[in-house]
Amino acid sequence: MTFLVLTQTLSYTKTAEQLYISQPAVTQQIQRLEEKLDLKLVHYHRPNLKITQAGEELADFLQRTSVQAKQVLERIQTPDKFQEINFSTTRSLSVFLAPKLIKEVAAQKAFRKISCHVGNTEQALAKVRNGESQFALVEGNFNKNKFGYKIISSEPFVAVAAPDHPLAQFKSLTWSDLVKTPLLVRERGSGSREILASLARAENVSLADFEHMIVISEPLLIRQLLLEGVGVSFLYRSLVEKQLQQRQLVELPMRDNGQTAHDLYIVYAKDSYFKKDYEKWADVLR
């Protein structure tokens, strides 16, 4: 427990405060653990504390097992209760993928409670890691060595603008053509932003090259601003499918990798006891 808290706070003082023990007691517990395991878990050169690779792997294992042990125990202790579904989703997927799952779960009428937490990719994964969510619906990049996952589908990620936007009149565009136009982009920690930044880097462009960047955490607000002619953005096509069909928005004709498909995932704790349950929901969403 002490070591897990230390990996989160990266501070002997804050760990002691959180556990209501003295700082020397924290130091002694960590030293005894290192001696018992014959592993170096922490590098500490005042004021910097760093968890070693071995320490990171141990913390990850301890976190996973403690979370899963709690979940298994809850299921064993309350076998007669209706099951509960508790999951997280990114903001983009909350618009078109999470509703599909909730509708399917609700139709079964076998679950007493459905809880859905909406945030960015980083926040969704954190909730899976600490056991607040059973699984998460995410897009973008994540450390696949630290989670169990299954691909749900591949979704086109497209450049979008209003039909009367000057760039919509071009037959072909490069990333360099975009940099003088206001770019609507998600916040740091968002999978969509990471995908966008990766696409730009592949064409030797960074987000810092854009002269005007508008950072917005809510994808529906980005869509609304696009409808009002404010700049350009990159979104999953499902987010703007209706608007594209009605010609309220148009896909920009990016020449290179501006229109690519990206995998959407259901992510859960690595080696989860409930893996088959989560993969069942992935199959429902296909």
Rank of each mutant, 00 (worst) to 15 (best):
V5Q: 04
L6R: 05
Q8E: 15
T9A: 02
L10I: 01
A16P: 00
A16I: 01
E17H: 08
A25R: 10
A25Q: 11
I30Y: 05
I30V: 15
E35V: 08
V42H: 06
V42G: 06
Y44E: 01
E57T: 09
A59D: 02
A59R: 07
T65G: 00
S66K: 12
V67K: 06
Q68F: 09
Q71E: 13
E74N: 15
D80T: 14
D80C: 11
Q83M: 12
Q83E: 15
I85Q: 13
N86E: 12
T89M: 04
V95S: 03
V95F: 07
L97R: 00
K103T: 14
V105E: 03
V105Y: 04
A106D: 08
I114H: 02
S115C: 05
S115Q: 13
H117K: 09
L125G: 03
S133K: 08
E139G: 10
G140Y: 12
N145T: 07
S154Y: 13
S154M: 12
P163D: 07
L167M: 10
A168I: 06
A168W: 08
S172I: 03
W175T: 06
K180S: 15
T181L: 09
L183I: 11
G191H: 08
L196S: 06
S206L: 08
A208Y: 08
H212Y: 15
I216C: 07
P219C: 12
L221I: 13
L225G: 02
L227Y: 04
E228D: 14
L239T: 10
E241A: 15
Q246T: 09
D256M: 09
N257I: 10
Q259I: 12
A261E: 14
H262L: 04
L264Y: 04
Y265N: 02
V267H: 02
K276Q: 14
D277G: 00
Y278D: 01
K280P: 00
W281C: 08
V284H: 10
L285F: 11
